[in-house]
Amino acid sequence: MVRGFAILLSFQWLGELLSTGLNLPLPGSVIGMVLLLITLRFGLIKLTWVNEAAELLLKNLSMLFVPAGVGVMVYFDLIAKQWLPLTVATLLSTLAVLATTGLTAKFMSRKGGGND
């Protein structure tokens, strides 16, 4: 477990380093995810080394969101000022993304002779 966390944090740190050092548009954590994927693929990192730590974090992901959401109380005034564009954009766009993603996947797998 300690090894797993050490690896995950090292990759994040490396990602942050690349992100700021090379002025990349990606957050360090995303670069870390790609680096982990590549090193797993080429066997430099064994799945068993990181599996436990990754599972622990991802299983409790919904709890980790809570403090981020509580932080919104600081911005209540700002939300009150722009509540209309904020809620309308969020709700309508969510419907649009659900529809376009699902329909594109459905259309493309049919076109490609998918077995569904």
């Binding site: 995950l8 995810m33 809570v66 403090p67």
Partner: peptide, 21 residues
């Protein structure tokens, strides 16, 4: 305290590489 929990979101993104793999 909240920031300490929030910090764990960073390594969680890295961890998403595992299910992808």
């Amino acid at each position: 305290g909240g920031d300490i929990i929030l910090f764990l979101l960073g390594p969680s993104v890295v961890a998403l590489g595992v299910p992808l793999y």
